[in-house]
Each structure stands twice: as C-alpha cells, then as structure tokens.
C-alpha cells in the first residue's frame, strides 16, 4: 500500500506558497485542521485564498491567519463569529466571496468529482445570481454554479491510516470529505494514525486516493463555541 505519512504539519505544508489557494475543513471550530493552521502561521505565508465554510473566531482557527493579515481572500458561507473579519471586510482590506452553504459544499464536491458546473435553485432572484447563467428546468428557475478546486486542501479527521484512508467523528465531518477530493494536494491531519489494515474498510468515509499526505496531529484544543448543557 502506498505510504502517505509525513512527519508533522511543517513537513506536510512546506510547499504552500504565498498566493496559494487553500481549502480548510470545518464547520465553525468543529473539525478544523488546527495543526495545519498553526503551520501556516509559523511559515508566515501570505496572500492566501482560503475556502472554508467559516472564518474561525477572533483568536482561533482561521481568525488567527486573519489577525496576521495572511489572508487575501475568503470564500465562505457564514462568518458571523469573527469581529476582525467583519472589520477587514468593511474596510476593504479583505476580499470576500459569500456563497450559500449548500452551493459551497456542492461546488467543492463538483471540483473533486470532475463536474465543471451544475444548476441549483439557491440564490435565484437574489444578488447571488448576478453574472450567472440561469435556466428553467421543469417550470422552476435555477442558476449555474462552477466547481471549486484548491492547490492544497487541509482536512482534519479522527482516525486515519498510513494509506490516507480517513474516518471522521460526529459533526466534525462536515466539509472535510469533499475538500479532500477537491485539493490538488490534500494534507490530512488525524488524531490517531494507524497502520494500513487496521481500519475497517466498511467504515472508511474518505478513501486514501484523495489524500497525498497524512500525519498525526498534536495538542488538539477542540475549542467549543457555544457550550450548551442541560442539568
């Protein structure tokens, strides 16, 4: 089996350059590539285009990259938890493309699946439609959306094996599987890395064919945005 293992986050991300287009998995702070983000901070790469459903919070996740002005453009669906983001956007320092969440997920899926465009009803009749082809199918209007791809995808899984096969936990799966397929080079960080053969093939979510590099991450903080409990 092809061995995809690299030593750590720094080694895995060493060829990410200024201006690279990145996909980063996660929904809110759930399932984000914490080690990969730290490596980007350490390497001080700039002018990044980051495709990610959210933009972290002020002091965690992609918010850390925004603080250091390493991000040129964000492509996201919801960025409401990040005041620094809102400030940079309103002041024009940051380019932002806001995309309906389902459209974002499907554009990424399409990128990995070799589908250059598709039609969706989301955003028809709204400002999202501007400049896009529209078409009627069976009496309903749709607009055309293009695929999304990335130079590098940074994804986070619960368990992975040396062949790059991945298993996610809970709702930390979210955008990670589609991003794994849509990255030219996909870097997977996992909480537990095991030899090929140890994961049950029936239970693998992302096949290793989509993953070029894998490493076992360290010191996961897994910060919770809204800690809600019942007594």
């Amino acid at each position: 089996m092809i061995n995809k293992v690299v030593k750590d986050a720094i080694k895995a991300t060493e060829d990410i350059k200024d201006g690279s287009v990145l996909m980063l998995g996660g929904f809110g702070l759930c399932g984000i590539p914490e080690n990969g983000i730290q490596a980007l901070l350490d390497m001080k790469v700039t002018d990044l285009t980051c495709i990610s459903n959210n933009a972290g919070v002020d002091d965690f996740g992609i918010g850390l990259l925004l603080q250091k002005k390493q991000v040129k453009k964000m492509i996201s669906s919801y960025v409401g938890e990040n005041a620094e983001f809102e400030r940079q956007l309103l002041s024009g320092e940051l380019e932002v493309d806001l995309i309906p969440q389902g459209t974002l997920a499907e554009r990424i899926r399409a990128g990995g699946a070799g589908i250059p465009a598709f039609f969706t009803p989301a955003g028809y009749g709204t400002e999202i439609q501007e400049g896009k082809e529209t078409r009627e199918f069976d009496g309903k209007m749709y607009l055309m959306e293009r695929w999304l791809k990335a130079d590098f995808s940074l994804v986070k899984a619960w368990k992975g094996d040396t062949a790059g096969n991945l298993i996610f936990k809970g709702t930390a799966r979210n955008f990670n599987p589609m991003m794994a397929a849509a990255g030219n080079i996909t870097i997977a960080e996992v909480e537990e890395l095991v030899p090929a053969g140890e994961l049950d093939p029936n239970e693998i979510h992302t096949p290793g064919i989509y993953v070029q590099r894998i490493f076992e991450g360290k010191n996961y903080e897994k910060r919770i945005e809204q800690r809600t409990v019942r007594s």
Binding site: G28, C30, G170, T171, R223, Q226, R227, T228, R230
Partner: peptide
C-alpha cells in the same frame, strides 16, 4: 437530541448554531 449533560459535552458534536448537542 437535547443539550448534553456536562459530562457528555463533545466538541465534535454541535448543531448549526455551534451549540453542543
């Protein structure tokens, strides 16, 4: 499901409002 009890809080299990569930 309902919000978890304190001992069952899991950062990997949230709803779309980012609340633990």
């Amino acid at each position: 499901g309902p919000f978890p009890t304190e001992d069952k809080v899991d950062a990997d299990l949230i709803n779309a409002g980012k609340q633990t569930v």
